[in-house]
């Protein structure tokens, strides 16, 4: 077991613990901070899997954008309602039965399947970003443009939906 493996399993464990932290959190703010830890450790796993572009995107978009958006949402909504941010839980037993059942099914499927992947035959790390750039501008240019239009539409939609708050 070399240093890379140790870092890999450290990030694996951290992501799992942070996910449990989200589940156990009573406060929405604590849950959002646990989500940041989880997303950053997944970004670390992406780096170790030679997916550097995706790791940087993950850090910029999720940890820098989505979670800050959610924290702002938490603060704004608590100011409107003037109530504490504690979250009640309901339907605990059906929820845990569903989650444990899904986990059991997936783990059963994974243990009975053999994957013929060869982790050591990966391409050098420096090629990947360049290759993704070429692919995005050649094979995947239509999805890229559609994704850009979708981003614009959702940006305008979110701004219009939230701007009614100011008008009132």
């Amino acid at each position: 077991m070399n240093l890379k493996d140790i870092i890999h399993y450290f990030f694996l464990l951290l992501a799992a613990l942070a996910a449990v932290g989200i589940l156990m959190a009573k406060n929405v703010l604590h849950a959002a901070l646990s989500l940041i830890i989880c997303l950053l450790s997944i970004a670390g796993i992406f780096v170790l899997l030679h997916a550097e572009l995706l790791a940087v995107t993950q850090i910029m978009v999720y940890a820098g954008g989505v979670v800050i958006l959610m924290i702002f949402g938490v603060m704004l909504s608590s100011r409107v309602a003037n109530k504490p941010l504690n979250v009640e839980t309901a339907r605990k037993i059906p929820g845990f039965i569903t989650g444990a059942g899904l986990l059991f099914i997936i783990v059963y499927a994974l243990t009975t399947t053999s994957f013929s992947l060869h982790p050591n035959s990966s391409t050098p790390a420096s090629n990947n970003v360049r290759e993704i750039g070429f692919q995005l501008m050649s094979s995947y240019v239509a999805p890229l443009e559609i994704a850009g239009i979708l981003l614009l539409i959702s940006l305008i939609g979110a701004a219009v939906t939230a701007s009614f708050l100011i008008k009132k």
């Binding site: 694996l12 929405v28 170790l48 959610m70 605990k92 929820g95 986990l103 783990v107």
Partner: peptide, 29 residues
């Protein structure tokens, strides 16, 4: 490092997310 461990982590995170959606009584959660 084995690919299977990543798949187990992925399954675990997916199940936790499902449990959060079912049990928490808050839209942001």
């Amino acid at each position: 490092m084995a690919i299977e461990h990543l798949l187990y982590l992925s399954a675990f995170l997916f199940s936790i997310g499902l449990v959060i959606i079912i049990t928490k009584r808050n839209a942001i959660m």
